[in-house]
Design a protein around this nucleic acid. Structure first.
Lengths: 129, 129
DNA sequence: GTTAGCGCTAACCTTTTGTATACTACTTAC
DNA sequence: GTAAGTAGTATACAAAAGGTTAGCGCTAAC
């Protein structure tokens, strides 16, 4: 293997590009992963979700849940036996396949945040003198 | 540990939520990861990038590169010695910290694509009969 | 001298995304 | 009977993101 492994060859890179494309198509956007993470805490009802996913409006949450249901990440169950009727949103098993992605992303996010923080402190320090 | 590990406790979940938030803030959006992946193939010039990141317009590519530069993922070098002047975009070392994220995302994307494909074939099969 | 490529930027327009407000129909608690 | 919660939808509007077209100054090739 004469070529350094840090650089990808063109074909490999193009393949990865389209794979990431496919992934972002279904889990990209501002809210999808946040909803999935929140549902990983356990099944929830609509208003519960809206409170936990801070900043989302009912309209957008409703649309996102429909998308997620269509893509097999979420099930919507109506419990008619209860009164008033309870509607339960639940993460499916397929959601578990995202674990590695979620893990990597949270780890990176935490690392990045602390990096930004120390940089900011450093700048503050410089600004004083 | 009496509680199943598949469900996260509320505090842990909220922390992950904000970490993913931080991550998506800098690498979220339609193009950022695609540009990063393309640059992982090696340093490139503007028009080269535009050709490889299919579908992106010059305006958006320009904006995204500025963002990525600001966040420390990309360096922009002007080679004045060459004629005509060559401008080189290069992924920084910090980009390497995204490797796990990228790996997880491409793996998931490939898996998801093949799942969708077999589902589609299955449906086609049903439709014929 | 004309054409083509480079590395963009500006102006304008469309699409997507999100927000705010109101409203439905039902139930429970006070 | 009134207020408050549930699970949304409808409507209208605003903001953000992205695309389209044109063009600039430069160089190199035909």
């Amino acid at each position: 293997m004469p070529i350094s492994r840090t650089k990808l060859e063109h074909r490999e890179c193009a393949g990865n590009l389209s794979a990431v494309d496919d992934a972002l198509y279904v889990i990209g956007g501002k809210w999808k992963l946040k909803i999935i993470i929140t549902l990983s805490e356990g099944s929830q009802r609509f208003n519960e979700l809206q409170r936990k996913v801070t900043g989302i409006s009912a309209r957008v949450l409703s649309n996102e849940l429909k998308d997620l249901e269509m893509n097999g990440f979420v099930t919507r169950t109506v419990h008619e036996e209860a009164s008033p009727i309870v509607i339960e949103y639940k993460a499916t098993e397929y959601t578990d396949s995202l674990q590695d992605v979620l893990k990597a992303l949270t780890a990176w996010g935490k690392m990045h945040r602390s990096k930004i923080k120390t940089e900011a402190e450093h700048n503050e320090h410089k600004a004083i003198h």
